[in-house]
Amino acid sequence: MFTPLTVAVAVAALALAAWCGLAAYRNEPTKDWHFAGMAVVTLLALAQLVVGVVRLAGGAEADDGTVVFVSYLVGCACAIPAVAFLSLSERTRWGSATVAAGAVVLAVLQVRLYDIWGGAGA
């Protein structure tokens, strides 16, 4: 699809996971700055969704099929907002741990997304 963006999302997600993991370790809930970080990662994932759909509209095809590819793109875009809401209603260290877990999941999804699009041939 667009490998630099995939890498950027994965790295940003792992950074967010480390940051929120640190907050959980320090027994802190997510704070405003954490939510700013989540917004940045979500924007990257949304940009990825747009780029992916534009590439598909331009005639490109994902190796594993359009349905799977778009599902993963949508899943990536929803992952961080979902855990952000969960951490809003869980104002403890476990809210931070939840965001960290969601961010790790997003990073793993990036690896799958890369494979689904066609790996090195992207």
């Binding site: 969960l86 869980e90 403890t92 476990w94 809210g95 741990a97 939840t98 877990a101 969601g102 999941v105």
Partner: peptide, 25 residues
């Protein structure tokens, strides 16, 4: 589902969504 359970719910939700969509497909 709160406290440490919140983390557990999240992980189970991820697997529920993942396994459901994967097997349905």
């Amino acid at each position: 589902g709160s406290g440490p359970g919140r983390l557990l719910v999240t992980l189970y939700a991820v697997f529920a969504v993942g396994a459901t969509s994967r097997s349905a497909y």
